[in-house]
Each structure stands twice: as C-alpha cells, then as structure tokens.
Design a protein around this nucleic acid. Structure first.
Lengths: 149, 149
DNA sequence: GGTGATATTGATAATGGTTATCATTATTGT
DNA sequence: ACAATAATGATAACCATTATCAATATCACC
C-alpha cells in the first residue's frame, strides 16, 4: 500500500469521525473496517463486494451494516454513488479527489474516469441560461473502450 | 392536439410497425393504444401512468403489456428511458426529436430539456482522447429550477 | 374459410436490489 | 455503575422490473 494512501485514509478517517460526531453518531470498529477497506480498494465496489472484503479480514459484520454505512460515507463526502441501469450501486472514492465523469464500456463494463473543465464550464452556462442553479451533475459517455475493440 | 403531432404519430406508427415486422412481431390494438397514448402525452410518463391513461380510454390492458411494449418502443427508437435514482423509469419521446440533456430540479422534480452542441462536441473529443468510441451519453444537471427559488 | 404455427396478452409469481424493523449488544456521559 | 442512546445484524418488507404460462389472437398457407 503506497504511503500517500495511508495518509489519505487517516485524513478521511478524521473527516468521517467529525461528520459522524456532528450528527451525534459514533465511530465504531465496523465503521472503521468499512472505511479502511473501501479506501484501500482501487475499484468501484458494490455493497456486496465490500461486505465480502470486510469479512475476509476476519471481521464479523452484517450486510445491512455495510449498506447503511456506505450511505453515511456518501453523506459525509467520502464516497460517491455510481448507478448504472438497474445494476447494483457501486461506490467510488470522493474525498480528496476532484470531480470527474465516466466513460463506460458497453462490452466489459469498465469505468474510465475523465475530466474536462471546459465541459464543466459550458454546463454551468447552460444551467444559468435556463435560470437553473446547478448543484451537481452526472455525465456518462457509453461506448467501446480501447481494450474491447 | 396540434396538427404536427398528428402527423408525427402516423410517422412513428410506421416506424414502429416496420421495426416490429423486421423482428417477426405484430402490430396489435394494444400496441397501437400504447403508442398513441404515449406520443399524445407531452409528459415524461412512467409505465404506471401510461397504463392508467390507456385504461381511461376504455381500453382493457394489462400492466405487463404496457411495460413490455415500452421496451419495444425504446428498442425501435421511438422512446427513451430516463432513470433517476431508484425511482420508476420514465419515458420520453425520442423519434423525431434531436438529442437533448436534462436539468433536473431537486425540489419539484421537473425535467428541463436542454441542448448544447459545443458540449456534445467536447464530449466526443474527450472520448477520442481516451481511445474510446462513444455511442451515446447521458448528461444530467441537478439543481434548483426557476420556479422553486 | 379452415388449420396449424406462432405471437400476444394479462394475471400473477419471481426476482433483485435496497431499505426498514427490532431485539440484542455496545458505547457514552454523568 | 447506571441510564440513555446509538449500532449492529438477521431478516422481513418494499418496490420496481422481469419472467412465467395458460388462454387468446393473429398470421401464413392451403
């Protein structure tokens, strides 16, 4: 595990603890395990996958606990939900990362993360032109990735 | 009902019939009722809402039939699915319309249709820069609409 | 028009993912 | 230590969508 990730995990931990405290909630061993497992993985995990990973660490935990707490991680700004179709929701790291969009391969399902500040700017202009106050957005481009051609 | 819509319905009907035929499927009275009701509505309907509308016309129809055939309408290029969160899928007209994106109000749930060809162009460039062949995309901007401020 | 093959329908069951329930356990502040 | 409160985890409930299947309708062909 590279050093930068270690640091990020500690930072994120503090953010999570503060966020929980501000809502009168506690930082439990389960929450710690979920947070660490989630941040250590570089993948876009589902609750099911994360649940399995936490269990692998000899941690006795319930599915509901993982599902519930992933919601908290989202609310605390540490994770983001990725919903595609009717499939299981996946989560990606949000804390410490800049906003990005996704290229989604229709063959292999790969998520390629991209960013274009010009597009972001034009999106804001587009919203303004419609008297609309933008808060967040989702851009997904579906197609075929390099490997699948 | 304005004249242009009447014409559009007939055109769409032909497209639908051709699409069905090419797949060895039939154009039934239920399919006709669903198509007409769908195209006559200017709203983004759910299967449930469409089902209710068709029934209002003294048409005896089942929920499953509506759901099934909305899928066909999508496959035939007449309708588009709009999925937001875990809510019911909504459908909008696709045939005869140019592609557009949505501003979605977080308060009232309104869908405002917008289009920006510059954004589209940049999206294609972005995909190309990643050796990705784009097929379609989805851009949703969430925020607060004019009426809700 | 009749006939056999095939598609459609619609009531309902099954599915799949997410969320709610609730008794039990753990943690906190005093 | 105690009372108050939150967390957990097994499971049920929920909700939208999709599958099933017997009954019905439609088609192509004779």
């Amino acid at each position: 595990m590279p050093r930068t990730d270690m640091i990020d995990i500690k930072e994120a931990q503090e953010v999570f603890i503060d966020c929980l405290k501000s809502r009168g909630l506690r930082y439990t061993s389960q929450r710690e395990a979920i947070l660490e497992t989630f941040l250590s993985s570089m993948k876009h995990l589902t609750v099911e996958e994360l649940y399995a990973l936490v269990k692998e660490k000899n941690m006795d935990i319930g599915y509901a606990t993982v599902a519930r707490n992933m919601k908290f991680l989202v609310e605390c700004g540490i994770a983001d939900e990725i919903k595609v179709g009717n499939k299981r929701t996946r989560f990606e790291r949000h804390y410490g990362r800049q906003h990005h969009d996704h290229l989604i391969c229709l063959k292999c399902g790969a998520f390629i993360e991209v960013h274009d500040s010009n597009i972001e700017m034009l999106q804001n202009k587009l919203a303004e032109a419609n008297d609309f106050v933008p808060q967040r957005h989702k851009l997904e481009i579906y197609g075929i990735c390099r490997e699948c051609r």
